[in-house]
Amino acid sequence: MNAQPTNTQPSHEISPQRPGRVSDAMAPDFLLTVEGLTVSFDGFKAVNDLSFYVDPNEIRVIIGPNGAGKTTVLDLICGRTRATAGSIQFKGRELTKMSENGIVLAGVGRKFQTPSIYEDLTVFENLEISFPRGRSVFGALTFRRDAEVRDRIEEVAHMIFLADRLQTRAEFLSHGQKQWLEIGMLLIQDPELLMLDEPVAGMSVAERKKTAELLNKIIVGRSVLVIEHDMKFVEDIAHRVTVLHQGKLLSEGSIAHVKSDPKVIEVYLGH
């Protein structure tokens, strides 16, 4: 990546294999621009002066050892945690100042690490809540379940392999099905940037395969930011990989590049 904004340190690893980018501080063609991002919890810097850039339609995987700050980065982008310093721009809009729901409306969707679904509601109702209409109090009161809503929900339910479970209360789903349901809830939302926190953790081999298949289907027309430990899975889906270590960027580039980076090897195998 050649687009290196002038205000960040030049010491970051830059992978050279994507030429043709105009060096421009505004970088208008990035979907997501993270620069100098820092958050400190009581003096401890969980994320420290982090910068990275995500292109439209790119699948970016963030890896790193435990405590590297991966989940915190997602928390910062979606507004769950507020940055101490730095900026996060999404399509040119500064996210660090926006409310959580404002960030969602701007087009950022986020899946949590443990399946986060509404156990007391049916699969249908779970998906319906994510349908992008009637999100204000008044809108929710007057929301009508019309054909458009029903068709869309059925379409998505089909994609997430839950077409025949629409009337099941979500608490009766298996762990893998719950993960899919949450991915489906994000699909209905139709975000331009989809952030997934360990989408295959705790899944069986068969479920993993299905999930990879599902992810490959849903990335069309959007960027995806994934945190994952499973290297096999990462190799299957990643366009590029960002490696975090102790809140800092350690390495970035194609999977082959990252795998051969001595610093990455040091962190993963050195101790």
Binding site: S99, V104, G109, F112, I129, S130, M185
Partner: peptide, 8 residues
């Protein structure tokens, strides 16, 4: 989850 589905 509700908050990050776009609701205030």
């Amino acid at each position: 989850r509700v908050r990050f589905s776009g609701y205030d």
